[in-house]
Design a binder for these strands. Sequence first.
DNA 1: GTCAACTATATGTCCTGACAAAAAGCCGGT
DNA 2: ACCGGCTTTTTGTCAGGACATATAGTTGAC
Lengths: 253, 253
Amino acid sequence: MPKPAADSAALGLGVDRTSPVPLYHQLAQQLEAAIEQGRLAPGSLLGNELELAARLGLSRPTVRQAIQSLVDRGLMVRRRGVGTQVVHSRVKRPLELSSLYDDLEAADRRPATRVLRNTVEPAPAEVAAALGVAEGSDVHLVERLRLAHDEPVALLRNHLPTGLLDLDTGRLEATGLYRMMRSSGIVLHSARQSVGARAAGGDEADLLAEPPGAPLLTMERTTFDAGGRAVEFGCHVYRASRYAFEFQLLARP
Amino acid sequence: MPKPAADSAALGLGVDRTSPVPLYHQLAQQLEAAIEQGRLAPGSLLGNELELAARLGLSRPTVRQAIQSLVDRGLMVRRRGVGTQVVHSRVKRPLELSSLYDDLEAADRRPATRVLRNTVEPAPAEVAAALGVAEGSDVHLVERLRLAHDEPVALLRNHLPTGLLDLDTGRLEATGLYRMMRSSGIVLHSARQSVGARAAGGDEADLLAEPPGAPLLTMERTTFDAGGRAVEFGCHVYRASRYAFEFQLLARP
DNA sequence: GTCAACTATATGTCCTGACAAAAAGCCGGT
DNA sequence: ACCGGCTTTTTGTCAGGACATATAGTTGAC
């Protein structure tokens, strides 16, 4: 029988009503931690919502909201008449809106940055269209070489609208662009990406320490803030021999 | 003032209580259609939830659930004390779990398929690990050449567990693999992808009508069903000169 | 013994009601 | 004229209840 028995009791579940963090979020975090640490085995049922709510002293909608947030992230599956169970496959993140710098740092690959250019220039047509500004109006241009373990990994060219951010070269080398944007109060909301490949040109090949004509992974990205304004347009090329995009997809129901 | 006036009245909103489709879903679809057709302008406020609920004869939680589903998909943004407004940027899909065949067909690029191989073979180590089966046990192997406008676009090699699906060569050529899986009752749930690039080998180059050494876009994908079992492992290579992945990312709050 | 119908169980949907918290605008004092 | 605090508006969170519906197991008839 493919129903690996429930558990659900004595999981250290319990909410703190004095805390400012919402109850449903507390519960969601505890459940996620339990899944992460294997205390909630994959495939195991979670016990019904009514009983869970009663034991925690919460109402069913609150418990449902907590579970729903895990379902939305692909950690659990609900089946009417059956119950809610933990999925078998260990899911990671569903493709976060993340920066290369953070990714490399999380992978412990000692990221470093060399700023090649940091200027203000009139916007070419393509950039102007992406950022939604007039062609020829001033935009920031930042060109960086990203290293990992002292080896070049990617060549990053970014355009940003003026007046949004103080693009200090020193800070650009010490941290990532996304981190700088977030700490300036910019709320990153969504991005439109295009990922492709092409052969390396002469200059790129030199900078990336690849032979001319080597295959490169390319990414174009326009990032929007919560209001829907474009806050960044980037053309990145990655050494295909050293880097690949990895991510998790979720089917939307 | 960056508050482009509300609208919200007379949008043709109204629910059908005799319909089996949930009320919150009806409302969400109508709002999405209104946004799609421009009847709800980007940046416009949606009017408060209480009033909207009253006008539609619904309760606030139901209206909230409808709005929330649009917020989750990045179509709207809520701000406490302000209201809910339509985002400016035109959002497409947040990277659906889609097949190349469907994508090409949606883009009206006349997809066609040539099945090169369709056999059962012992699983190599990499495939066995991805599918979660024993090394050397039998798995399906399907190798296809995907064409668009009568030109080769991609070379698709897929491994599937045996016993899941009837892999008829004729149907494989007439439709996509994902469509076949779905119509067999398999519920696609999530996938783990890795996208990279490399130079074309001799055989690949011939099949794809590219010169040897041409840059190719590569994708490896393991797809899981709702129970978390791996149902497909694919290694695809795309002609970088003809194809790029395009998708929308959403920041998770 | 087999298959259909019934029943128990769990989630899905929807309602009413209440208070908290953040944001924006109003208004008064200095 | 400026700047503080107050009020209003709106979403955020939470409770408790009711009924619908899909699933699985059990029971009953044949």
